[in-house]
Nucleic acid binder design. Structure first.
Lengths: 334, 334
DNA sequence: TTGTAGGCGTTATCAG
DNA sequence: CTGATAACGCCTACAA
């Protein structure tokens, strides 16, 4: 691998000059510039990133931590991040947190050691306080999927309350009055917000909130299925269900079917997220979309803007959920 | 950020000694070792990876390129890779190739500049020849999802012919004799192999191959749907279909349903891959599983073994497809 | 077993 | 505008 020194010799200039033409900024005589470029081409020279990083104290890397690399939620986000990070000539260092508080801290530590120029984290088990502490520690950090007051300008998130409202409202608009809810883990803000949206929509429509109609799920198929079973067992006569995410909805669908009921004929079902499988469920799931890829892009732009003070903060931080109508919700004949 | 020199001063030893206790191998007096460790702890010292890389010419990173980061196929693979790479204290540099020949080459170049210690590539558009050329270029490269003779010991792949055989055979075992096939893009070896497996199973069962029963798909929902429509239009009386991957199967399912037929009552359907959505389809899709995560792990182990000559080559390179029975295939009453 | 010192490839400072 | 040269932080002969 050729070094800058070899280039400088071949081009008959100093290494400083080579560095200059390669890194732009400073003016260099046209003749020398060309001679350098020629030498670079001839040698196939590529700067050694380690040496450069050592000298500049910049790695050119953006660290990313998500709960689960293989989850349909986060992979969309990563894709969004990658597209903008790479377009800037920077690269991605990824690591997963596996939704464990300890593991998440470990992942952060792990990436921090690699000295990325910025960090983008989508953490589940970590507390707001820890997040605040970490991001104060020198490394520009953007928080994905969570809103923290103290870090307001570094948070990319979606208004889950609005999303919950949207979903519930859609059901109400279709004539439903008795609406059940399969919530997510109450420890998660997302889950609580969606529930809050559900309650508000109910309230706004003059429907009183009935605790018996909401069960706790876990954002996974099993929880959705179990929750639905409990709901069904209570025999409350609900005509529709809002599941806190698509995966719970898929589980709920199974339970409904096992109970001998049909969607949407007997029970209408609405999910949340709009991951790939929502389209494939039968009936295709009406749901509330989270723009994962766009949020990933925004996160990356925010991270990048923290580096080059140039980019002003015109990055969108708050995203809106949008209703995607498919066929799992039926209008109730009144 | 503390440097090794500061540690050495605090511990009252030379930097060399600090380096030694931190990097193992060489013997160091217990007293000094402890004093160094204490100093490290006190200062919260963390070696500067750039300086280290510059000196050792090793980055500690493994580069990974897949077609699409957000695809359910590749994200499983990445997860597998990550788990073993990180367990070795190394990190992951990811980039996507977006299935374009030019883009793939670009991604490789991009990662190569970051000087990972090894590369794991899952490429679609790139030719075998290019792959061979690249991997000869100094950087240990493992090829995922493709078998290339010249790179035999660096390829992790699944026997797709066997998989195609398995799927078709399952249908035959259930009494089906007239079996259609929605193939993948013929440009892809995976697709051709699955088709070959289909043909061989037919042949072994004494069923003659009928060209009219196979249509070209594209490994995506649209292709599966369109292909199924064409098949249905030909009115050939087939009782079952083998789709080259789950996504095509999902599309086919839509078309079958739109045609007023039911799965598996009227037509049995089998997919390939066993991605998440297979379980959620209705009816749940019988399919052939590719162990993505395990393959990713194997790829990582192979990459790692190329670095530390220690690990012998006991890494599994060839994986077997396994049939996952769900409910989209019915036995044919004869 | 330990310390000294040179080198890894760049960038950046500072004279010319 | 250009060229020396000193960092950058660590590893590793080599010598002691």
């Amino acid at each position: 691998m050729a070094t800058i020194k070899e280039v400088s010799q071949l081009a008959k200039v100093s290494v400083a000059t080579v560095s200059r033409v390669l890194n732009g900024r400073v003016p260099v005589t046209e003749a020398k510039r060309e001679s350098v470029l020629a030498a670079v081409a001839q040698l196939g020279y590529q700067p050694n990133v380690f040496a450069r990083s050592l000298a500049t104290n910049r790695s050119g890397g953006i660290g990313v931590i998500v709960n689960e690399l293989s989850s349909p939620y986060y992979s969309g986000v990563i894709q969004g991040i990658e597209s903008v990070v790479e377009a800037q000539g920077m690269h991605l260092l990824v690591s997963s947190g596996h939704a464990g508080r300890h593991l998440e801290a470990q992942a952060v530590e792990f990436l921090r050691q690699r000295r990325p120029d910025a960090l983008i984290v989508q953490l589940e088990a970590t507390s707001d306080a820890d997040l605040i502490a970490w991001s104060g520690h020198g490394l520009p950090t953007v928080v994905l999927g969570r809103y923290i007051d103290a870090l307001a300008d570094r948070c990319i998130h979606l208004d889950n309350l609005k999303g919950g409202y949207l979903a519930t409202r859609h059901l109400i608009d279709r004539g439903h009055r008795c609406i059940a809810h399969i919530a997510g883990k109450p420890a998660l803000k997302d889950a609580r917000d969606r529930l809050a949206g559900y309650r508000r929509a109910l309230h706004d429509a003059g429907i009183s909130y009935d605790e018996a109609l909401v069960v706790e799920g876990d954002f996974m198929e099993e929880g959705g299925q179990a929750g639905m079973q409990r709901l069904l067992a209570r025999d409350l006569g609900f005509t529709s269900v809002f599941a806190a995410n698509d995966q719970s909805a898929a589980g709920a669908l199974l339970a409904i079917r096992a109970h001998g009921l049909r969607v949407p004929d007997d029970i209408s079902l609405i999910g949340y997220d709009d991951v790939l499988l929502a389209r494939y469920l039968f009936p295709a799931l009406t749901t509330v979309r989270q723009p994962f890829v766009e949020m990933g892009q925004a996160a990356a732009m925010l991270a990048l803007s923290a580096l080059s003070a140039g980019d002003s903060k015109e990055v969108r931080r708050q995203f809106d959920p949008v209703l995607i109508e498919r066929t799992s919700v039926a209008a109730l004949q009144s």
